[in-house]
Nucleic acid binder design. Structure first.
Lengths: 215, 215
DNA sequence: TAATCATTCCAGCATTCACTAGAATGATAA
DNA sequence: TTATCATTCTAGTGAATGCTGGAATGATTA
């Protein structure tokens, strides 16, 4: 009967390999970035604000847990999530964290300059309004990420170009901005800028990965 | 703009607290046990084959991540999952692990004595057959766990009592046994015993937590 | 060929982790 | 009071982890 113990230990140990990947803040950040589409090591390093070497070693962990795939493209190596369920798991983990951890809730409140900027994400009605053109859904991520996937009816204006392209947006309707997800600051910045310029703007906390989760 | 980095780091750090809980094999085992219902520290220690003190310290981690709740009941302290989504997360993590990790797939094959014993879990048709009484769904977990929650139409005969209570089961119909989940060995043992005794028996890999996930 | 992108190996450092053991503490029930 | 259940503190061990730096290696492109 000692055998049973050994087998069980082996099984849980394997599952823990997946848990370990999700136990490091930097790896979580890399996962969220990869949720936006495939990226090179350099890009990931820059966007996560860490060295290429450290990025490489975190990506190694992800590879060893079979959560990412790689593809060489010329001089670069592209990383992408191995599976949609990896993105789903990321969303489920951070959602549970937001549900349980008061510290996280408090930290999140610091992002939205004004809580009133946040839009209560009633998907049905938001999409209905977007379809009718009553609101403009604005994707402020880099355009490659928009091209990889975006919310229905969304228009792309990367945050960096927003100030120059304000004329593309209407002042008589609401603008709902979103970015990579609740931990990305781009949408909040966009909303602040838009409101400064006299637009009616709201902040949608969810990104593409969160939106894709079937509820 | 350094502020943005600090806030981001803080956010991912909080989410990583949840990931850390899922990064230890023993804690995963405790979570699975708690998926079966509330239990005392002693029970958990016994069923996970670890010391009470070590169990206590793992439970402390779970408490600090707000994933469990406690309640004093006389001399004992009962632990239970704080939320259904904790059980859901456990299921999703081990499902992803089974999907991605070949080593885990191989280890799982050792459990079912014969792969043919495994029942392809087409829920619809299994439940239809169970409703009609064409098959007997058998819960071989301890009876407290059955009382806490069980599959529809399931009958309870704890593995320990199975040998003495064989006469309660029909020989002209199939018996489908299940236990705590894919990492629990009780259902496999039950099926082996039943087949030895001339019953037609199958092994359902899923437990209550897996069954409860909406697909 | 040289330059770029990425990984790997080495070493080192500080920190954390899982686990064990002994002893003390607290809360409860009989 | 005594016994039981559970946690906590201290202390220790061995292992792993996150990160940094330097140097070498490979694959690719120009």
């Amino acid at each position: 009967m000692k055998d049973a113990r050994k087998i069980k230990d082996l099984l849980y140990e394997q599952v823990a390999r997946i848990g370990k990947v999700f136990s490091s803040p930097k790896r979580l950040e890399l996962i969220e970035l990869l949720c936006q589409g495939e990226k090179t090591v350099e890009t990931l390093a820059r966007e996560a604000s860490i060295s290429v070497k450290l990025t490489s070693s975190h990506l190694r962990e992800l590879r060893m847990a079979q959560l990412v795939e790689t593809e060489r493209q010329g001089k670069n190596i592209l990383y992408r999530l191995a599976n949609k369920s990896v993105a789903d798991l990321w969303v489920q983990v951070h959602t549970l964290a937001e549900d349980r951890l008061v510290e996280l809730q408090l930290a999140l409140q610091k992002i939205a300059t004004q809580p009133a900027d946040l839009i209560a994400s009633d998907r049905e009605s938001l999409m209905k309004a977007a379809r009718k053109g009553e609101v403009v859904v604005l994707d402020v991520r880099p355009s490659e990420e928009y091209l990889n996937a975006h919310l229905p009816f969304a228009r792309s204006i990367p945050l960096e170009e927003l100030r120059q392209r304000l004329s593309e947006l209407p002042k008589d309707r609401s603008v709902v901005a979103y970015c990579r997800g609740p931990y990305c600051l781009m949408a909040a910045d966009a909303v602040a800028l838009l409101k400064d310029e006299g637009f009616t703007a709201f902040h949608l906390r969810e990104g593409v990965a969160e939106w894709a989760i079937s509820k």
